[in-house]
Structure formats: structure tokens, C-alpha cells
Simulated assay, not measured.
Amino acid sequence: MSASSTPVLRRLTSRKAAVAGVAAAATAALALSLAPGDAEASVETEALAAAPVAWELDSAEASVHKSITSQQSAFEARLKATQAKAKAEAEAAAKQKAAAAKVAAVKKAEAKAKAEAAAKKRAKAAAASRAAARKPVYANNLDGWIREAMSIMKKHDIPGSYDGIKRNILRESSGNPRAINNWDINAINGIPSKGLLQVIKPTFDAYHVPGTAWDQYDPVANIAAACNYAADRYGSMDNVNSAY
């Protein structure tokens, strides 16, 4: 190394040392300002660290942000629409299910009512069959007519013996259920006497006995009505020995 280069090197070395010294001093000053013992400096440092940093987006970043925001809004809108549709479908399904359950309940009730009606009809038919089986069978002649009429009269407390009834029948009609008187005053008045015991229509209607036919010519109905009239008028058909 030449003698002339030595002073230059020394100057550079001195400058570097000076710069290093300044840097060291600055570092020491900063360290001192951040020392835990200095409360005021610590508060200022914390406030500086907590302060928000202003951030501005450039045009490209703003465009990306806008696109993301738009996509998010569109997604939220689709989500709401999907949720609303799902809710509407669930409500419609619930209504349909309720309607179906109501229809099923109605059909079940109708089927039950129909079954009960059929059961009642069968029970009624069975009861009628049993009653018919127990009901006495009367001969379709004068003897049977008198006996059947007497069984009905007994239920209504209408007096009259077999002999008393038969005696009056033989006198009035000779046992002919289709007998009719077309010559007496009743016939002249338009209400001829008819049947086994020659009963006129007003008397038959007034003294008709429940359980018998509404027909003057019906032998059982005619006997029962005539005996009912005789019981009211004479105490019993047994007390009648002539036209009555």
C-alpha cells in the first residue's frame, strides 16, 4: 500500500465509525424511550400500535371486492329462495297429509257406520226370525181367526170369550169374512156393515186395535175392533145376543 492511499482509508474508516456511532446512539435513545420505567412513553407506544392503519384499495382490488360482494349477495338471495321454497313445500305437504288424514277418517267413519247399520239390520232380522219362530201359527179359518184375535185382544185388555165371539159371528155373518149388509139403514147412509161381526167403517176406525190390519174385511181386525166396541158399549162381546 502506498503512503498516499493511507489518509483516504483513514477518512473512510472514521466516517463509518461516526455513522455507526450515530446509529448506536439512536438505538440507545429508542431503547431508552421504550424502557418499562417510563410510563408515559409506554402509553404513547401502545396507542401508536393500536391505532388503525388507513387502507385504500386500488381499482383492481376494488373490482375483486365488488365481485365477491355481489356473489355473496346472490348466494344469500338463492339461499333465501331455496329456504322459502322448502318451507312452502313442507307446508303444502303437511296440508296434503292433513287433508288425506281427514278423508281417511271420514271413510273410516262411513265404513264403521255402514258396518254398524248392517249389524243392526242382521240383528233385527234375526230377532224377527226368532219372534216369527215363537209366534203361534193360526189356521186360516174361523177357529184360527178367533184365536188370533183373542191373543191380540189380551195384550190390550179387551175382554171376550171364544164361545161369545163365535156365537155372535155365526149370527151376524155365518162365518163369511166378506159378508156385507146392503139393505139396512147403515147401507142407505153409505156406510154398510161388513165382515164377520158386521162393523161399519166409523166404528171400525174408532175402535181399531193396534197390531191388526186397517181393513174391515180382514177377519182378525174385524173381530178385534168389534170386541173393543162391544167392551166399551156392553162390557164384553159375551154380553151381546142380538144386533148391536
Rank of each mutant, 00 (worst) to 15 (best):
M1N: 01
S2W: 05
A3T: 10
S5K: 08
T6G: 04
P7N: 08
L9F: 05
L9R: 10
R10T: 15
R11V: 15
T13N: 09
K16V: 13
A20R: 11
A24F: 06
L34C: 13
A35E: 10
G37S: 07
G37K: 02
D38K: 13
A39L: 11
S42I: 09
E44D: 13
L48M: 06
E56S: 02
L57K: 03
L57P: 14
E61D: 12
H65W: 04
K66F: 01
I68R: 08
T69N: 03
T69A: 10
S70K: 07
Q71V: 08
S73K: 08
A74S: 14
E76Y: 06
A77N: 14
R78P: 00
K80N: 13
K80D: 15
A81G: 10
A81W: 01
A81E: 12
Q83T: 13
K85L: 12
A86D: 14
A86T: 08
K87G: 14
K87H: 10
A90P: 01
A92H: 00
A93N: 06
A93T: 14
Q96C: 07
A100E: 13
K102Q: 15
A104I: 01
K108L: 15
A109Q: 12
A109I: 06
A111Q: 11
A111G: 12
K112D: 08
K114W: 00
A118Q: 09
A118D: 08
R122M: 10
K124P: 00
A127Y: 13
A127L: 12
A128Y: 05
R130L: 15
A133W: 14
A133V: 03
K135Y: 12
P136G: 01
A139M: 04
N141C: 11
A149C: 11
A149F: 02
A149S: 12
S151A: 14
S151C: 01
M153T: 00
K154I: 03
H156T: 02
D157H: 10
I158V: 09
I158Q: 03
G160A: 06
I165Q: 00
R167G: 04
R167V: 02
N168D: 03
N168M: 03
I169Y: 02
I169A: 00
L170F: 05
L170I: 09
L170Y: 08
R171W: 07
R171Y: 14
S173N: 04
N176C: 11
P177V: 08
P177C: 07
N182V: 06
N182S: 06
N182E: 05
W183H: 05
W183P: 00
D184C: 07
I185H: 15
I185W: 12
N186G: 03
A187N: 03
I188G: 06
N189L: 12
G190S: 04
I191V: 08
P192M: 03
V199L: 14
I200T: 09
K201P: 13
T203N: 15
F204L: 10
A206M: 11
H208G: 05
V209K: 01
G211S: 09
T212F: 06
T212C: 02
A213G: 04
Y217D: 06
A221R: 03
Y229M: 06
A230R: 06
A231D: 02
A231N: 09
D232F: 09
Y234A: 06
G235P: 07
S236I: 08
S236P: 07
D238L: 03
V240G: 11
S242R: 11
S242W: 15
S242E: 13
A243S: 13
Y244P: 03
